[in-house]
Design a protein around this nucleic acid. Structure first.
Length: 308
DNA sequence: CTCGATCCCTGGACGC
DNA sequence: TGCGTCCAGGGATCGA
């Protein structure tokens, strides 16, 4: 699945391969996962891709500035989310198109930039000006840029489970299931722990673990799980370094205890039951056991208005 | 606020 | 070999 390291890898590849190219024409396949297919086709055709960058799990194809409805030039971009199985690759136009190719942008040098996505869990949108700005503001901090202080403050400021928080794109943009589990394993924190109950030390450790893992994964060009390939068609290698994700029943690399899989925040969560101690009140097997909260009355809820 | 459930979708794994 | 079934999972949405 493309998460931050995979998207970063692909965005860097596309920056090398297609930045500066002009799009001559556009062909669309299945379009129900696109925000506004007609607009995408119209706006992309004839424009120039100025640069490609990563934003969370999105790739941003920054486009040449063009006049908006009011005649004033505004910034615009094609937002591409790869979902579970999406990829975007430049290929010679003469090469047969892969099955599930849903967007094809013909470039002036005779290549085509192709978006391929069997499951269509991805998203493609064209946005400009204020709409673009507002869309980007929906997302939280970049996990590679967030300071330790801010990370600790955010994590400890909420009562959601840490796994859910790591996956919440409004908190951190770009972390998905693999890297959430890997960083929690490295930091020795159970995925079902409540964020607000982490110690400052634990939160600091998690911040460091997350950044180290993401950086290493980028160096190794991401994890190739469901046939992820970079812009050159090469698989990543980080999947060979996974310590928790996908290792149910296998020995923990630290203590030999078999790795377990539970569902947290609706997602498979792999962890070492020995290194990553379960929070109190969550003993084995028992799910749906909410921690009783003192003082969380309706009165308190009513007062809690007017907070961002 | 936070939760779980449900839906979207296809391919791969598995059982017979 | 060829079915049918189950499952994976990011994100939107909805009800609790």
């Amino acid at each position: 699945m493309p998460e931050l390291p995979e998207v970063e890898t692909l965005a860097r590849g596309l920056q090398r391969e297609v930045a500066g190219s002009r799009v001559l024409s556009v062909e669309l396949g299945k379009t129900e996962f696109m925000d506004n297919p007609a607009e995408i086709e119209r706006e992309l055709a004839g424009t120039r891709i100025e640069r490609v960058e990563r934003y969370g799990k999105f790739m941003l194809l920054r486009l040449e500035r063009a006049a908006g409805a009011d005649g004033v030039a505004q910034e615009s971009a094609l937002l591409v989310h790869l979902g579970m199985t999406g990829t975007m690759v430049p290929r010679p136009a003469s090469e047969p198109r892969a099955k599930h190719t849903h967007l094809v942008a013909l470039l002036e040098d005779g290549r085509e930039l192709r978006y391929i996505d069997p499951r269509r869990f991805g998203r493609i949108a064209w946005l400009a000006g204020e709409k673009l700005r507002k869309e980007l503001l929906r997302f939280g901090a970049d996990p590679l840029l967030i300071s330790q202080e801010e990370f600790v403050q955010r994590i400890r400021g909420r009562r959601a489970r840490i796994k859910a928080m790591l996956l919440d794109q409004g908190v951190l943009r770009g972390v998905g299931n693999i890297y959430a589990d890997e960083s929690l394993w490295k930091a020795k924190i159970h995925p079902a722990r409540i964020g607000a109950r982490l110690t400052v030390e634990e939160a600091k450790t998690l911040h460091a673990a997350l950044q180290q893992i993401l950086k290493k994964a980028i160096v190794l060009r991401g994890s190739s799980i469901s046939d992820f390939l970079d812009a050159e068609g090469e698989p990543g290698e980080y999947q060979l370094h996974h310590k928790a994700y996908g290792r149910e029943g296998k020995a923990c690399y630290r203590c030999k205890t078999p790795i377990r899989r539970i569902v947290v925040a609706g997602r498979s969560s792999f962890f070492c039951p020995s290194c990553q101690k379960a929070p109190r009140g969550m003993k084995r097997g028992r799910r749906t056991k909410p921690v009783p909260r003192r003082g969380a009355s309706k009165v308190a809820a009513k007062v809690a208005v007017g907070k961002g």
